[in-house]
Design a protein around this nucleic acid. Structure first.
Lengths: 336, 336
DNA sequence: CTGTTAGCGCGTTCAA
DNA sequence: TTGAACGCGCTAACAG
């Protein structure tokens, strides 16, 4: 509403040309120390802030990145955003956030917009529905770098920052086997997400290494009600498992909730381990062992990669596949 | 990198002038139906996306809002972001996110940047350090509307969306009093945050209405270690309370953690209630009663207000003080 | 060292 | 109904 200060105004005030002002503000070598100081002093006094969009238009650089993810109602993504935003602020970049709500259609619509040069780069975690990658490849082809974090899209050749999902699935299963579990159920929110499938592979691998062949994979939908239904059926079946791997945070909560609905808590003879960043997992009853991802680090690492490729065009994202190990945190009932 | 499609390119391809293309794309009445269709068809075919920055520069409107908040590592803010982003996407706006990490200095730096027209409006929740409001008033004076949500700044005259904090502090205290508590401690993360102080007022009010005069306010810092120390001292004192109100989610977690460190859990004779949106509070041991804020609704309501003021300049934000009631969720030990 | 000029892509005049 | 021209604010190339 109020007209902001522009270079032109500064120029008129100092009897200089706009070009000179622009250079002076950028500390260009071709401007005398005197004028530089004069200009910078006035700019500061008048609280001059350059119009970012004018400069973007001219330089074809926006100093802005997009973060595209399913939802933030999850402690993993919350922490990841913290990491991303920190690095972005350090590098002078701005962060646009877009949520797909696990919808492929939204994801496509959002990416299409980026054809216009709104952002210089994209950090993304794909939706559970994402089963093809044309939209992603298209945006990369148009020259905008993409770095995946956590939920990657396997058939796209670009940088990824993940945890060792196969390995952690394996570790989770071993943890239960060590506790004497004979029938382990692996709960999944989607059979399309690479990250979940890797965890499942690890789980299967662990089973294969023992004589125990009674592992089962249960696909719960992403819908809360259906999810509860599947879990309920599982817990109430005669052949119920004695070990459960919840491959996502939501599922862990669901297991606890359903259990307390049907029998006032998780039966002592069922061990549960979850892929979760819940910091209060140790306070649950019984305490929940978790495979925890260093979310902040994943976010900041992904952002760092992206900025490297933005600074140096020779930096090749295709070669980057960073795996950050997840943590197995064993928590056992102290009472029991 | 690849040159994107521009109006000029479309113009050349169709033997029309850029001006005509621009109008045709906007469905202007002064363009014939025929050309409009031709233009729009080609635009779609070539996947034309207008350059947002050029249009911003010209129209002095960015279709972008900023969300400024302390951190997202908290379920309240996570859910609030979901609400904000939903409404923004519906209205065709983009969302920039900035974290202050509870630092006033960062908050000021961030707001200063907005002088430039980067955003059309701001949604914010102030940092715990924020004890003056010049930076906020300045940005409002420059014509950029601000809507506070959750953590407001009292002495700034603009729209606020909050929960009924005084009332909920009162409710929380009553809940404990009903359970027979005689000595209630109110834990606070800051004595500067209006929202926390309101909750405290409610707490004091409830105490005044009874004969019980043994309420105490403990200021924990925002630092995790110090916080734990204060709580530990509190729990181990001879005169320890029999009721605790945790005025923020972090504090609730801290109480549980500290308790389990010093005596394997919260003593049965201490009742705890927390201001928290933790969805797994019911799974804690003992279950945690909570005052829960409808975070998604708060976020979406704040965003809606902001967009209203952006669409209609006559809409006056100053008159808007929306209070969305929080929910007291009583959770009692079923076993005990 | 400083000024001039041109143009980034778009939208809005005003003419034709 | 269409086209030509200007300018949003900034930067870069080139002159002076």
């Amino acid at each position: 509403m109020n007209n902001p200060i522009t270079i032109k105004i500064l120029a008129k005030a100092l009897n200089l040309s706009p070009g000179t002002i622009s250079k002076a503000l950028k500390d260009s070598y071709e401007i005398s120390k005197e004028t530089k100081e004069k200009v910078q002093a006035l700019a500061k006094a008048l609280n001059y802030v350059p119009n970012p969009y004018a400069s973007s238009l001219r330089k074809k650089i926006s100093n802005t990145i997009a973060v595209v993810l399913p939802e933030v109602a999850d402690s993993f993504f919350s922490q990841a955003i913290n990491g991303i935003e920190s690095i972005a602020q350090d590098n002078g970049y701005h962060v646009l956030i877009y949520l797909t709500h696990e919808s492929l259609a939204r994801e496509e619509t959002i990416l299409e917009q980026f054809q216009s040069g709104r952002v210089d780069g994209i950090l993304m975690s794909v939706s559970a529905e994402t089963n093809h990658s044309e939209h992603i490849e298209k945006i990369i082809a148009s020259g905008i770098p993409v770095v995946f974090f956590d939920r990657i899209c396997e058939n796209v050749e670009t940088a990824c920052v993940t945890t060792d999902d196969l390995e952690s699935g394996y570790k989770a299963a071993c943890h239960l086997l060590e506790q004497g579990c004979k029938k382990i159920a692996f709960l999944s929110i989607s059979d399309k997400l690479a990250i979940i499938n890797m965890r499942m592979e690890g789980f299967k691998k662990a089973l294969k290494e023992t004589d125990i062949k009674t592992g089962a994979v249960k696909i719960c939908s992403n819908n809360e009600a259906e999810c509860a239904k599947t879990i309920k059926k599982l817990l109430m079946s005669k052949n119920r498992p004695d070990g459960i791997i919840a491959s996502a945070e939501k599922l862990a909560a669901a297991v606890y909730t359903v259990s307390s609905e049907i029998n006032l808590g998780i039966p002592a003879d069922i061990k549960v381990i979850a892929f979760s960043n819940l910091q209060i997992a140790s306070l649950l009853n019984p305490p929940l062992s978790t495979i925890t991802q260093p979310a902040f680090e994943i976010g900041s690492t992904a952002a760092t990669l992206l900025f490297k490729s933005l600074e140096k065009s020779k930096f090749n994202l295709k070669d980057q596949r960073i795996v950050i190990p997840s943590l197995l945190i064993k928590r056992a009932s102290t009472v029991n």
